[in-house]
């Protein structure tokens, strides 16, 4: 049996999705109230990280393997860049072209053009990045061969 005791596991099961929902709220309402892509993305990553901590690596890693995470990292960053580049059609790099076409209504979700979309892209990027940092640090192993010390990443146990 990997991971921690049944108490921690059960509490994690109760709360992981709640944390995820809160992160999603911060991201999607980032242009309306306190929050944003960075804060929300970190909290989204937390819901995965506590699952790894509670259940042990094997259970969770196959839900989001390292290779897939590394791809998502690139894709999130690329999505932000593409959003910005499409602004070229609106005249300038980073111009808010969606808002020019469809302004929406202030204080509502669909109101700030590319800003919520950019928040989502950043959240994806930050979430996956933090997950990868955690993964890298958690799977780091120090091995000694004579007086040579090696740090290598291995699969999480």
């Amino acid at each position: 049996m990997t991971g921690m005791t049944v108490i921690v596991k059960t509490i994690t099961r109760w709360t992981a999705a709640l944390i995820f929902l809160y992160g999603a709220y911060l991201v999607l309402y980032g242009h309306l109230s306190v929050g944003g892509g960075f804060a929300g993305g970190i909290i989204l990553a937390c819901s995965y990280v506590i699952m790894i901590l509670a259940y042990g690596g094997k259970e969770t890693i196959h839900a989001l393997p390292k290779a897939v995470a590394a791809r998502l990292d690139s894709i999130g960053a690329l999505a932000f860049l593409i959003l910005a580049s499409l602004g070229m059609f609106g005249g300038f790099f980073f111009s808010n072209w969606i808002r020019d076409i469809w302004p929406g209504q202030q204080f509502r979700v669909f109101s700030a053009g590319i800003i919520p979309l950019a928040n989502i892209a950043i959240a994806l990027k930050v979430c996956v990045s933090l997950f990868l940092i955690f993964f890298i640090l958690a799977s780091l192993r120090m091995t000694r061969k004579g007086d040579k010390i090696e740090f290598r990443s291995e699969e999480v146990d």
Binding site: G30, H31, L32, S33, V34, G35, G36, G37, A84, F94, N96, R99, P103, G104, Q106, F107, S111, A112, G113, I114, I115, A118, N119
Partner: peptide, 16 residues
């Protein structure tokens, strides 16, 4: 910018 949160407006619109 249409963003009610000014911090986000600065982060993603003015200084995106």
């Amino acid at each position: 910018t249409g963003s009610a949160n000014i911090v986000t407006a600065v982060l993603l619109a003015y200084r995106g």
